[in-house]
Structures are given as structure tokens and as C-alpha cells.
Simulated scan of single mutants.
Amino acid sequence: MNVVILCDGTPPKPEQLKKELKNSSLFIAADGGAFTADRMGVHPDVIIGDLDSYQKTGQEPGEVIHDPDQETNDLEKALAYAYKMEANHVTVFGATGKRLDHTLKNLSVLKQFHNQFESIIFKDRYSDLFLLPIHFETELPMKTTVSLFPLSGKVDGISTRGLKYSLTDGVLENGVQDGSSNETIENKIEIVHKKGDLLIFINHKTD
């Protein structure tokens, strides 16, 4: 089951969201993300959150769920609902941008729910980002910009293939060494790591 979640951060391009919705079974707006959905002419199946932004009108085509719990943010509520509905693959839009503290919190939520689904990916106008498994392979166009970030603070035993700046049993650590703005030199890349939470940013070519 594929689920799309729309949060209240920087909106994606309308065509990005609509393309993803074509292959989804459930569309969830996390609180203020419902306003973004409305502006783009798409209708969530569910609106969920503490509703400090969105106010129920009674005209919604889908369900509105008020969850006042202040120990969880709106993305957590949406992901918990997706898990309850037995989602396999989750794509999240609007989880980044606007307030930096909200973006950092949502990255923490990504780590929290990482093992609850077969895949969970954040998408925005610039990048696709997700936590890597211990061994990861994919195919990308040549000269795609790729960044690696140690979400856990430090990631050990990183080896890469197909990237311009390679690592062999290397370490990335916040404030010491980062892995930003690398580039693919082969169509197939491979990344392995031994310990820690490693984020990958696969950057889009933007207009």
C-alpha cells in the first residue's frame, strides 16, 4: 500500500505531488498541509493533526481527525495513522523548509519511523532524502548531485562506489567531516556502512 503525506512545510511542485498521488492508495494531509492540498486542487482522504492550523469546515470530502496530543507533531500523527492502515511505502512532501526547527524535528521523526515501513522518503523541490540501509544500490543519471549526512552524529565504515569523491571504510561525523555535494560518475552507485544512521540526499535538477 502506497501512502502520500503532505505536511505544512515548503510546498512541492504541483506536478510532483500529483504524479505521486496517481500511484497512491491513501492521501493524508498533516494539519496545515490541507491548505496546500486545497491550493493545488487535490483532496486528502484524511486530514490529521492537533488542528492548530486547519479548522474543520464540515465540507471536507475526507475524514478529519483531531489528535490534540502535544507530545507528537503532525507528521508523527500522520505516520502513525499510515502504519495503522498497514502502509508499506510512504512518500512525504512538505516536511522540510520554512522553520528549521520543524525540519530538524521531522528528520528525527524519519529516524523514529524508519523501520515501520518498507520505505519512507521525504521529497521536496530539490531532493529526495531517506535513511540508507546497511547496503544500498541504485541507478542514477550521470552527474547527479548526491549528499550523505550522518543523522546519528557519526557514521562508521562507509564505502562508496560510483561517486566522484569515494570513501573506503570511512567515517562521516558532524563538525569533523561531511559528505555534501558529491557527484555520480557511474550510472550505478553503491553505498555501504557499518554503524550509524546515514541520510542520503539525491538532488534534482531544478529550473
Rank of each mutant, 00 (worst) to 15 (best):
S159N: 13
L163R: 03
I158W: 02
T168P: 00
T168Q: 11
G162A: 04
L151R: 07
L148R: 03
D169E: 09
G153K: 02
S147Q: 04
I158K: 08
D156I: 06
S152P: 10
G153E: 01
S147L: 03
G157P: 07
P150C: 11
F149K: 08
S147C: 07
G162V: 02
V171I: 12
K154T: 13
S147R: 06
T168N: 14
S159C: 12
D169P: 04
N174T: 15
V146T: 13
S159I: 13
V171C: 10
G162K: 02
D156P: 04
S159D: 10
S166T: 12
T168S: 15
D169T: 04
G170P: 06
G162P: 00
G170S: 03
D156Y: 14
S152E: 13
F149Y: 14
L167P: 03
V171E: 05
D156L: 13
D156W: 05
T160R: 02
S159G: 09
G170I: 00
G162N: 01
N174M: 14
S147D: 04
V146L: 09
S152T: 12
N174F: 01
L148N: 08
S147E: 01
V171A: 01
K154P: 04
V171F: 01
V155K: 01
P150V: 10
T145H: 11
T168I: 08
V155T: 05
K164I: 00
T145V: 13
R161F: 13
V155W: 02
Y165H: 12
V146M: 14
S152L: 08
G157C: 10
D169W: 03
S166M: 12
G157H: 11
